[in-house]
Amino acid sequence: MKKLLFLILLTLSNIAVFAQNGTGPEMADVFRSSGKIYVVVAIVVIILAGIAIYLFSIDRRLRKIEKEK
């Protein structure tokens, strides 16, 4: 468990390093500066959380049925 936590920490540690965007081709800078991109991210996170809970519940039910056998 300790190792796993350490791994997650390391994986996430690079988020802070990358922040700027150069000028050049048009990117979604307005979208990002208005802050609304976080709304999309939040929605995606909710969807994934739902799918995760759904899959884990199927897994649990299956394990119960398998134990009955």
Binding site: I15, Q20, N21, M27, V40, V44, V45
Partner: peptide, 9 residues
Amino acid sequence: LIAGFLLGV
């Protein structure tokens, strides 16, 4: 999903 939207490209 989070980093895919927020990190720079």
